[in-house]
Design a protein around this nucleic acid. Structure first.
Length: 476
DNA sequence: ATGTAC
């Protein structure tokens, strides 16, 4: 888009002053070339977010921002409930609490020699992937309720993983305030056989190798070394989150006039945080967050089982688990003083800096791990939270590369089989139930994740720690 | 993202 629409504050900070219906300014963080390539829709959408009731400070877009439903993907907005602030289902996203979890394996590249193919097959066999994929777990009514309230803690109690995993999971594996009664029977029905499954689209389980370290001190705190093998899991709340999103978007669109909210865009449907509908969505969304946390915890257990088949006795520890599709009640500095706000992060990763009370002891001095998934066949990054991000983005950073091309366009341009063969030649093994899915996820259908991460680093949203390259990718 | 439309 045209850079002349912005007031450039520094190399990676572009401001749109409040005008028209905007209550606060909008700010996009990106270098000039990423911003130029960004869809004009991001400008329109982030200005619309800035016009919502009760928004504080500014509406923000991350360097990987692109056109989404209502809010841009890569959008951040914080709202004050006491000032008529709203919550928006489209501001969280359909895949509630979609996120990334990274596991240490204690292995190096050398350990994979001769077993790579077997490991790929074993992981693919163990972790269900694809549209409508089902697991071996089937939840009855009471178990569903316990899962929606207990999150990853419930999963660990059921024998899926170890108590120590929870220490390294955002929110220690469960959020308060989940209300299973606000989750419809249809949403539960869709989820009851889907626990411990990856899903489709850009979701994956990837075996990765640490190929570059940018910050030795933080890397040591995260126990990351060059050539180490880690496993990253990217997925969310499956059918449950999607159903919650669908239902509440509809309810919120219908209720807007009742709450005297003038919507700049129908897709920005929202409800006051203090309204019955807003509270019901909060209760359901938090149940969705617990579902995603439980899902990644169960997949961790399945991963451990698969890894044990190939490497008997192997011990797998969690580096961290962080979501990038949520609305969270947090304390932040607004107009110079601390207050409680509800931060929407849609395609944006929470990135708490050093000293934040919610971080595990081991990461207190260096800040939260910020896990950035690349597209299939490309690099992923691990960053750390900064102190500056508190003032710049309510402690938020980017979440990935972001699509540069539609799925349809991608399937016209690439064939799944050819991509799998091509990646295999580069030493990257792909396993997927859908060759069309593979084509849709072609590496070149995404923006350059390295440019996105460099912009986030330069903008002070998070600091680069390590770069990972894929070895095996189980694709949904 | 998603029982890729109810």
């Amino acid at each position: 888009m045209d850079l002349k629409q912005f007031i450039q504050r520094d190399e990676t900070c572009w401001k749109i002053p409040a005008k028209g219906a905007m209550r606060v300014p909008a700010i996009i963080y990106a270098d000039a070339s990423l911003l130029q390539a960004m869809d004009q829709k991001v400008h329109e959408q982030i200005c619309n977010v800035a016009a919502l009731p009760g928004i504080v400070e500014a509406a923000y877009a991350m360097p990987d921002a692109h056109w989404g439903y209502g809010f841009p993907i890569g959008g951040v907005g914080a709202f004050d409930a006491d000032q008529g602030g709203v919550i928006s289902a489209g501001g969280v996203g359909f895949d509630i609490s979609c996120g990334v979890r990274t596991l240490h394996t204690g292995l190096t590249m050398n350990d994979l020699q001769g077993v790579k193919k077997d490991l790929a097959d074993e992981l693919y066999r163990s972790v269900p992937a694809g549209v409508g994929s089902r697991g071996l777990i089937h939840l009855n009514h009471d178990e569903m309720r316990a899962m929606l309230t207990g999150g990853a803690q419930w999963a660990v109690d059921q024998g899926f993983g170890e108590a120590r995993d929870l220490e390294f999971t955002e929110e220690r594996g469960r959020v308060d305030g989940a209300e299973p009664r606000d989750v419809s029977p249809r949403a539960r029905e869709r989820q009851k056989d889907e626990m411990g499954t990856l899903g489709s689209g850009n979701h994956y389980l990837e075996v990765q190798r640490v190929v570059e370290i940018f910050d030795q001190e933080v890397a040591e705190a995260y126990r990351l070394k060059l050539d180490a093998i880690v496993i990253s899991i990217h997925c969310g709340s499956r059918g449950l989150g999607h159903q919650i999103g669908t239902e509440f978007l509809k309810d919120m669109a219908l209720a807007a006039s009742q709450y005297h909210i003038t919507l700049p865009d129908r897709e920005l449907a929202c409800a006051p945080l203090n309204s019955p509908l807003g509270k019901r969505y909060l209760g359901a969304m938090r149940a969705g967050i617990n579902c995603a946390l439980a899902n990644r915890q169960i997949i961790t257990h399945l991963t451990r089982q698969a890894m044990n088949e190939i490497f008997p006795g192997i011990s797998i520890d969690l580096l961290y688990d962080v979501s990038h599709n949520t609305c969270k009640e947090e304390r932040h500095i607004v107009a110079g003083s601390a207050q409680t706000v509800f931060v929407h992060r849609k395609g944006a990763t929470r990135a708490f800096g050093p000293g934040h009370a919610d971080l595990p002891t081991e990461y207190q001095s260096v800040g939260q791990p910020v896990l950035i998934g690349g597209s299939m066949g490309t690099s992923s990054y691990i960053l750390c939270g900064t102190k500056q991000a508190e003032q710049r983005s309510f402690s938020s950073a980017c979440h990935g590369a972001g699509r540069a091309m539609s799925r349809r366009q991608a399937t016209k341009q690439w064939h799944g089989r050819a991509l799998v063969d091509q990646l295999a030649e580069q030493g990257i093994l792909i396993r997927s139930p859908s060759l069309r899915g593979v084509a849709e996820e072609a590496p070149a259908a995404y923006k350059d994740v390295s440019a996105v991460v460099d912009s986030a680093d330069k903008a002070g949203l998070a600091k680069k720690v390590a770069r990972l390259e894929p070895v095996i990718c189980i694709k949904g």
